[in-house]
Design a protein around this nucleic acid. Sequence first.
DNA 1: TGCAATTAAATTGTGTGCAATATAAATTGC
DNA 2: GCAATTTATATTGCACACAATTTAATTGCA
Lengths: 154, 154
Amino acid sequence: MPKAQKMTVPSSKRAQLLKLDNQLCFALYALSNRITRLYQPLLAELGITYPQYLVLLVLWEHDARSVGELGRALDLDSGTLTPLLKRMESNGFVSRLRDADDERRVVVSLTTAGLKLREHALEIPGALACQIDLPLSELSALRIQLQHLRQTIE
Amino acid sequence: MPKAQKMTVPSSKRAQLLKLDNQLCFALYALSNRITRLYQPLLAELGITYPQYLVLLVLWEHDARSVGELGRALDLDSGTLTPLLKRMESNGFVSRLRDADDERRVVVSLTTAGLKLREHALEIPGALACQIDLPLSELSALRIQLQHLRQTIE
DNA sequence: TGCAATTAAATTGTGTGCAATATAAATTGC
DNA sequence: GCAATTTATATTGCACACAATTTAATTGCA
């Protein structure tokens, strides 16, 4: 046995790790982009984008959330959310109001139109599932793995 | 047995499917964003962004690729790649030259500086792995599942 | 009470993503 | 051979993402 050395990965191994096909990050990035593109035509019918759809998913579960609460739910910052929410407001799907109890906060609420969108949106998960040829049980297992991995990174 | 009806998912079930926590797409989106943020400080030291890093991964494996070949490798279109490659060119990491055999094509090649970056980049996969507290075997299995799912969507 | 530290959003600036369109070179059909 | 089609890249316009900074409101605590 050779004497113990500093723990390093040999450079041949490190070179393997730089290959695109070995990158978990790229597998995530490419699949995420692709799935967003799958949603796009369905969401365009509703007049919303994919990140806007995510905001609606949160609000349909709990209406009247602050920008910060939305940001924590979606892991997005105010630099992304503020202009996005302003677009949703000007399109008539949400209202943005200062919280009277804490004037720093802006509370985002569904309008009637925003609530109404939910009925049409109920068709979306099914329409998406049709385009993904994998058993639902596998998709669910994959989702849980991804959620778990994200938690370990926090 | 009730008479066969049109195959539809009951609306209570559809409502479940609209919850954020049940969305595979969001699990992908949020994890992909988060991992990109993990890379950002490491890549900033090299003077590149995450998508630029992906371009370099391709070129380090096969130098001198056309814009179209890069786009197929990374699943990105010319609207994304053209300005990104121009930034990489002006930062001195790649050259962009019309292919003499086919004047429609633009061949992207590594400069000396672009090739040199690879040495520093060899440290990156290891640095990332340290921030993700999961066995490499699991990460590898996850990557393969994601690659497979992307193929089924093509 | 008073004011420094913290918190919540907004703003600024840069860099993606992508649909739609434009431009130009190569290929195909006749 | 050459017009019509196809292919490769670029451009335009819009909507994210996010780091860094700014502004304003609240909290903590001496």
